[in-house]
Simulated assay, not measured.
Amino acid sequence: MDGRSLVAWNLRRLRVARGLSQERLALESGVDRAYVSGLERGRENPTVDVLDRLATVLVAPLAAFFAEPDDPAEPAPALKAGRKPK
């Protein structure tokens, strides 16, 4: 797994574990939602500053984006579809 794919895999894993949508993560970190989507698909190359802002919102150390997965073939589970009730 290359570096960009590793960051993508871990970003999705951390985001889902916190129960955040891409939209919410983008809003709270000050990053465009389409950019967050591109990061999770491995199409964008984030700066350390962007990773730091995402890590702050995800309450995770910056190093968590570079953790080798136990089973990289198993993607992070998806969040439940739809909006949460107010």
Rank of each mutant, 00 (worst) to 15 (best):
M1H: 08
D2F: 00
G3R: 14
R4E: 12
R4V: 12
V7K: 05
A8E: 11
W9T: 07
W9R: 15
N10L: 01
N10W: 02
L11I: 05
R13E: 07
L14P: 00
R15A: 02
A17C: 08
A17V: 02
R18F: 04
S21H: 06
Q22T: 00
Q22S: 07
R24S: 12
R24L: 09
R24Y: 02
L25V: 01
L25H: 02
L27E: 15
E28Q: 13
E28D: 14
S29D: 03
S29T: 01
S29H: 00
G30I: 09
R33N: 02
A34S: 14
Y35V: 06
G38M: 10
G38S: 09
E40T: 05
E40V: 00
R41T: 08
G42H: 10
E44T: 14
E44L: 10
E44M: 11
E44G: 13
N45F: 07
T47Q: 05
T47L: 03
V48W: 07
V50F: 03
L51E: 09
D52I: 00
A55P: 00
A55I: 00
T56Y: 11
T56I: 09
L58H: 07
V59P: 03
V59D: 14
A60W: 05
A60L: 06
P61G: 15
A63L: 10
A63S: 15
A64V: 00
F65E: 07
A67T: 15
A67V: 13
P69N: 10
P69F: 06
P75T: 08
P75F: 09
A76S: 08
A78E: 12
K80D: 14
P85I: 00
P85S: 04
K86W: 06
